[in-house]
Design a protein around this nucleic acid. Structure first.
Lengths: 233, 233
DNA sequence: CCGGAACCAAAGGTCAGACTTATTCATCAC
DNA sequence: GTGATGAATAAGTCTGACCTTTGGTTCCGG
C-alpha cells in the first residue's frame, strides 16, 4: 500500500504521519526528536529525516530549543499524496472523501473540455477502450473490472487535458473511486446512466466537442456528489 | 522569500530544488549523496535530509547501490508550495503560470458558489472590505495596494468555501496574482470591469446567491485566462 | 557460445557520540 | 518594571564507523 515502506525511515513515517493527520496530537503539541527516536527504537539521524519530511508536508514545525510542534490542520499540505492517503485511512475519511469529490466536480469538467481540444489520437483510443471496458463490466457484480476501467478513464481525461496540475490529480481521483467501491456504499451494479455518460464523454472528446465533453463530465461529477448526499451546485 | 532558508539544510534545498525543477538534470540522471555533500560543503547527514525531502516531493528517487536518480517531471508533486515556487522562479515560468491560471479557472467559481452558502458573517464582511480596498486602489498606479486586497479577496473566497482542498490553494492563487503584478504585464491600472466583478461577487456571497457568485467568479477567471491569451473554455 | 551461480564492490542506510548554536526562561541589577 | 545577563535545553551539525542491499563482473559448466 504505502510506497515509503522502504527502510526504517519509511516505517516510522508511516506510523507517525497517520497519527498526526488523525489528530492524535492537538495543534501546538510538542514532540521531542530524542523521545520519538527512543519510542521507535531508531537513531536520532533517522528520526531527524522523518521530521524533515513531516516538516516539508507542513504537518509539523521544528524549532530550536522548543522541539517539533504539530501544526494545525489548515496548514497541512493536503495535496501531498501521502497526506491524502493517511487522511483517507483515518477517522475523518468521509469528510476527506467529500472534499476530494467536490474538488473533482470542479476540476474534471474543465479537464474534459481541454482534453477534447488537446487529446492525441492515441489518448482518444484509450478513452474509448476504457469506456467500453466499463460497459463490459457494468453488469453481474464485476465491480473490480469496472473500477479498473473507471480509474483509467478519468486518469486519461486528466492527462489528456495537457495541464500539469490536472494530470497530477489522477492518483487522487483513482483513490476516491477505489474508496467508493471498496469501503463505501456500492451495493449493486453501477448506475447505467453513469456508464452511458462515460461513453458519451469519450465520443465528445473524439469528436473534439469541448463544450459537450465538459457538460457531460459535469453530469458525471454531479452524480458523484449526489452519491455522497452533497447538494449539487 | 523562501521559508526553508533556515539552517544549512534549507539553503541546500533552495539551491538543489530549483536546479532540478529547472531541468538541469535530465530525468534518469544519477546524483551521488557524497558528491552533493562535497559540492555544498555540508556533511552527509545534512545531505541525506535534503534528499529525503526531495524524495517526498517525488523530484528524485533514492536507491541503494544506484544513487539518487532524478524523476521525470510528470512524477513531481506539483502541488507542493515549494515546488510551485521553484518552478515559478525558473525558466518555464510562463508555462507554469498558465497551468495555475487554468486550475484557478476550474476551482475558484465552484469555491465562490460554496462560499455563498457557507461563509460566516465575518467572512462576508472581510470580503466586502477586500473588494472596497480594491476599488480604493484601482486608480493612480497603486498596484501594491490593489494586489494586497486582491490576494486577500481570493484567499477569503477559497477559505470560506469550507473545503480543505480549496482553502489550501489560497497561497497558489496569491502567488499567481503577485506574479502577474510583479513580473508580467501589468502596465496600467487594473481593468475597471474586473474590479466591479469583485465587488459584485462580494455582494452575491453576502446575499447567499450561489449561482450568481459562481457565474461572476467565472467571468473573473475568464478574464485572467484572456490576459494570458488562453482560449476561454 | 551462452546461461547461471558465485563473488565483489559501490552506494545508500543506520548508528553512536561529540560538539555547536540558537532560543527560551529565570534571575538579577538598575 | 525593565532591561541585561546567564544558564539550561533541544535542535543543528559533523565525524567516522559499520551494515545491507544490489548491480555488475567473473568464472565455470553445459
Amino acid at each position: 500500500m504505502s510506497n515509503t515502506g522502504r527502510g526504517l525511515h519509511g516505517h516510522v513515517l508511516d506510523t507517525l504521519g497517520p497519527e498526526i493527520t488523525a489528530g492524535a496530537y492537538p495543534p501546538g503539541s510538542v514532540l521531542r526528536t530524542d523521545e520519538l527516536a527512543q519510542r521507535f527504537e531508531v537513531s536520532r539521524s533517522v528520526m531527524r529525516e522523518v521530521v524533515r519530511v513531516l516538516e516539508s508536508m507542513r504537518l509539523v514545525e521544528s524549532r530550536r530549543r522548543v522541539g517539533v510542534t504539530v501544526r494545525p490542520a489548515c496548514d497541512w499540505n493536503v495535496y501531498d499524496p501521502q497526506v491524502i492517503r493517511w487522511r483517507l485511512a483515518g477517522a475523518d475519511r468521509p469528510r476527506q472523501l467529500r472534499s476530494l469529490t467536490v474538488l473533482r466536480s470542479a476540476v474534471e469538467p474543465v479537464a474534459a473540455g481541454l482534453a477534447a481540444r488537446n487529446a492525441t489520437a492515441e489518448q482518444c483510443a484509450e478513452l474509448t477502450e476504457c469506456a467500453l471496458g466499463m460497459v463490459a463490466n457494468s453488469r453481474g457484480h464485476r465491480l473490480e473490472g469496472y473500477l479498473f476501467h473507471d480509474m483509467a478513464f478519468h486518469r486519461v481525461i486528466l492527462t489528456a487535458s495537457g495541464n500539469d496540475m490536472f494530470a497530477r490529480l489522477g492518483d487522487v481521483v483513482a483513490e476516491v473511486l477505489a474508496g467508493r467501491t471498496h469501503h463505501d456504499v456500492m451495493f449493486d451494479d453501477p448506475d447505467p446512466a453513469a456508464v452511458t455518460l462515460h461513453v458519451q464523454v469519450a465520443e465528445a472528446v473524439r469528436e473534439r466537442d469541448a463544450a459537450r465533453a465538459e457538460k457531460l463530465t459535469r453530469e458525471i461529477t454531479v452524480g458523484a456528489l449526489q452519491e455522497l448526499d452533497i447538494l449539487a451546485p
